[in-house]
């Protein structure tokens, strides 16, 4: 293959090459061991099958990954996404209420309120990080724990079950044969992509994440960038909360979005965005999220108990982070140099 300028070479240079390879490996594994993974059926005009399931189940994670990508690109992190999901879910369900067939509040108001609360939660993180200059990890850890307390307060400590049909469309409905959450993800992705690639915000994020002092000297308002990004990350978690609560037809302040932080970070890191900030790839993170989700689905379909999945994920996160660490990278560079000398 001497085709250095062809699509293959170009693809290899982009950040999404490795996530694509990994995703293909998972698919290949399924092709061999559980071919029913690829079976697609049309029932009542809707598409069904494991692949659709991955898209559907993976939607909250993809949403979180989009927000997390932007945060990590500014050299930060957001550990509170799971708690924000719980807040969003709690808000929307409390406003809709547990009455069969009707909503206590007009649904669109309930949804806007949930998204508004999530945006506020994210902005709070952003304020702590950008103005109070608290390390992102600690600032968001506070909301990670206190946020679940807030969600409990909203639901008054109850698991609220809702019976309002129209709301179930958000998580369980179908549009053009595809699950509706996929369209939410597509919409948020398109918005994020447009904002970061068709305005200057993406450039500023990458600049601030790479060298905050140089960015400041060049006239970039680093504080406002961070504030907006954390708020956006909260909003993404808010959408995820809507999907989750609609799917479960309830809000559980303790368990909604539990431990999605690590999956989100994992998706972003697999997608090629460095934990140290700078360059980011939204598409890579989406692929990373799909990868995480298909691994989970695959493991489930093999009959492995879900508890093990978490352990496997923890090991995978650590491995991926170590592979991307400078120490390993430098070591690999040296190895390849040594091998490169004779040839």
């Amino acid at each position: 293959m001497n085709d250095n300028t062809g699509w293959w070479a170009r693809l290899r240079r982009t950040g999404i090459f490795w996530p694509l390879v990994a995703l293909s490996l998972v698919f290949l594994f399924n092709l061999i061991f559980s071919p029913q993974f690829f079976r697609l059926e049309i029932k009542d005009g809707h598409l069904f099958g494991s692949l659709v399931d991955v898209l559907n189940r993976g939607s909250p994670l993809m949403l979180v990954a989009i927000g997390m990508t932007a945060v990590i690109a500014t050299a930060g992190v957001d550990l509170s996404v799971g708690a924000v999901i719980a807040i969003s879910a709690a808000t929307v369900t409390v406003l809709i209420g547990s009455v069969t067939g009707e909503s206590q509040t007009p649904m669109w108001i309930a949804i806007l309120a949930a998204l508004g609360a999530s945006l506020l939660a994210g902005a709070w993180n952003g304020l702590l990080v950008s103005r109070a200059r608290i390390q992102p990890m600690v600032a968001t850890l506070v909301l990670m724990v206190a946020g679940r307390g807030i969600a409990q307060l909203i639901t008054n400590g109850q698991i609220i079950t809702i019976y309002y049909e129209p709301f179930f469309f958000i998580g369980g409905g179908y549009l053009l044969g595809l699950p509706f959450p996929v369209f939410i993800v597509a919409g948020v992705f398109a918005f994020a992509w447009f904002m970061t690639r068709r305005t200057a915000i993406g450039l500023f994020i990458e600049s601030v994440g790479t060298n905050a002092s140089s960015s400041f000297h060049s006239g970039i308002n680093e504080k406002n960038i961070k504030l907006v990004i954390y708020a956006f990350c909260g909003l993404c978690a808010g959408f995820a909360g809507l999907i989750i609560s609609s799917n479960l037809k309830s809000a559980d302040a303790n368990n909604a979005g539990l431990q999605i932080e690590l999956d989100g970070i994992l998706a972003v890191v697999i997608g090629g965005t460095l934990m140290s900030g700078g360059r980011f790839s939204l598409a890579g993170s989406i692929l990373g999220a799909l990868l995480v989700q298909s691994v989970s689905t695959t493991i489930y379909s093999l009959g492995v108990p879900p508890e093990v999945v978490q352990v496997v994920k923890a090991v995978v996160v650590l491995t991926v982070v170590l592979l991307y660490s400078d120490v390993v990278k430098n070591g690999l560079d040296k190895l390849s140099q040594r091998q490169g000398v004779p040839s």
Binding site: T199, A200, L203, F204, S207, T210, N211, H217
Partner: peptide
């Protein structure tokens, strides 16, 4: 420390201040 933004391209480094002065959306 205060000038170079290493991970960005030459093009991005060149337009950085100009873009900053134009604002986020322009």
């Amino acid at each position: 420390a205060d000038g170079v933004v290493g991970a960005l391209t030459v093009r991005e480094n060149i337009v950085l201040a100009l873009q900053a002065s134009r604002g986020w959306f322009n």
